[in-house]
Design a protein around this nucleic acid. Structure first.
Lengths: 132, 132
DNA sequence: TCATCGTGTAGGCAACTGCTTACGTAAGGA
DNA sequence: TCCTTACGTAAGCAGTTGCCTACACGATGA
């Protein structure tokens, strides 16, 4: 991963770590200080601080000074980009495969006993017919 | 990122790279061989091959032998885990903040002229009242 | 003013990523 | 049989991650 990539990459990268996802789930129950967030993990405070830096850089949390403490708060809108990308692509891919399935049904009805092959292989063959 | 983490981490990690997302978008238009996928990128074939390995490891694509070529196909269901996680958390976070907003409104109506502070600070203060 | 608490930063280390070039392997054709 | 094509794997390099310990800094309190 090159440093400082685009916003979407930063969000997905931040989510690609169990510790950081656990921190987000903890924050979903209410804002917390760095010490409170570090407590359940077998990890030093600086390590958590660095994870928080990644989350903040991705726009998923916010750190604000509060006297002696730093309070961490979720930024729900930080997930917008990732949610939009995943939902759009998931829907588009599924729609494409549904079209292929209909194509396969049509082929099956005109050629009921075609040559052997798995469903996936048949789908791949039909694939070519939808590209030009 | 430690090697061989959980499924969700592998998916998000695979999506956290512009090149890999571009490959997925290309594949959404139809399956392709490795050479076809490598063509638009200023990158060697082995580099693309490694990216494909990451995508395959995450369950987002499938590589099948086809004579002399290797055909790559999307696995739409591979996005299921990521889609579910993002949608669930986005909804839960938003719901929580909506509740806080209502709490703030209630506070504002009972104490119309409270002490100074930004909206965010007021939200953080209200935060404590929702936790026990 | 000085000690303490909560955090961030700096420096160091092992492991991993992402890319390269070089080479190995399987399929297809002369 | 030999050559070409398509692709993967191996080895190596620079840069990054993720963790640690040590230390610096601002806020709080005696």
């Amino acid at each position: 991963m090159p440093i400082a990539t685009d916003s979407l990459s930063r969000i997905f990268f931040a989510l690609a770590d169990p510790t950081r996802r656990a921190v987000l789930e903890r924050l979903a129950a209410g804002s917390a200080t760095v010490g409170e967030l570090a407590e359940p993990f077998a990890m030093s405070r600086p390590a958590i601080s660095q994870h928080l830096g990644v989350l903040e850089d991705a726009g998923l949390i916010e750190r604000t000074r509060e006297g002696q403490w730093r309070r961490c708060t979720l930024r729900p809108e930080g997930l917008d980009g990732a949610e939009r990308w995943v939902a759009e692509h998931r829907a588009a891919w599924q729609a494409r495969f549904d079209r292929l399935d209909r194509t396969l049904e049509a082929l099956a009805s005109t050629r009921p006993a075609g040559p052997g092959g798995t469903d996936r292989a048949a789908r791949d063959s039909a694939d070519a017919e939808t590209e030009e």
